[in-house]
Amino acid sequence: MIGGVTMSVLRRRVRRRVISVVLSGVLLMAGGTARGQDFFKNLIQAFGFGGGAEAEAVEVVIDVAPGFAGDEGPFVPQIKTLLGTELHFVRKVCKPDDAQMEAIRKAGLAEVETIAKRFAAAQQQNRRDGWPDARMGLSQALRRKIVDVMPTEAAKRYDDELTARKEARTEAAAEMMTTLVDGKVSLLPKQYEEVTAAVLANWQDAWARDLQLFLYEDFAPVPDLQAINGVLTERQRNLWRGGHQRGRIFFGWEHELGLDWGGQIELGRDLLVKKPDPEAVEAQKPQAGEASETVGEQVR
């Protein structure tokens, strides 16, 4: 998906570039130096009527824009949004003071850069299965700093909440899987919990990365027959054997992180910038007739 978007942008750039070069040529040659058919054929070739010309141009542009695909820059703002949300969670659960929050914030920002680089690497290699779990990465980095700077009790609260969050997500995904099984083979009431337990016994964390997948039954992760074999009746097994999956689907990392649905919500945006030192604010208060200045960093 990301690759597709990038290619599309690149193609547009190529097209603009080719068009501008050709139109420049047209204007330069409009004085009468061009000779009709050959020149026009060249134009047609340039616009791809003759086939092949555009494909070559696309390749060229990929080469003349080195670093774009491997640049972590485009990922940073999105991952920062996610960091803001996670810092909001830290504030809610651990209630750090300003100094503690500043240390945690710095750790988070450092991790944003790390994750962005890994994202860029995944994109460069066009690996759809290689995107790191950014939320997990951020929360683990924050957790390490929280253990350093917060009292044990607060760190434990955060730890417990992270565990509970993961369990809730796993439970939701496992039950959604059971619902899909039920939809195909009409589970008996007692089989409901048995199938969920069998799914959990064979759990893979990747199954809970994108819960939206479970809404597309032909593409959702579902348990192997082997995993639920002992729970189903023969008739149900036969139905399940019929096969359901059409393949895998990947909506993209933004989707996986919940960044592209549900509207623009940016909790914790205030936490992404260093809280101004009250004394510095006081000292920098504009005197009469002076222009004011912003204290603190700007959010990118």
Partner: peptide
């Protein structure tokens, strides 16, 4: 769990 991504919730 989806909401939890946009608004991180406690247990």
């Amino acid at each position: 769990a989806m909401i939890d991504q946009k608004i991180p919730l406690t247990a």
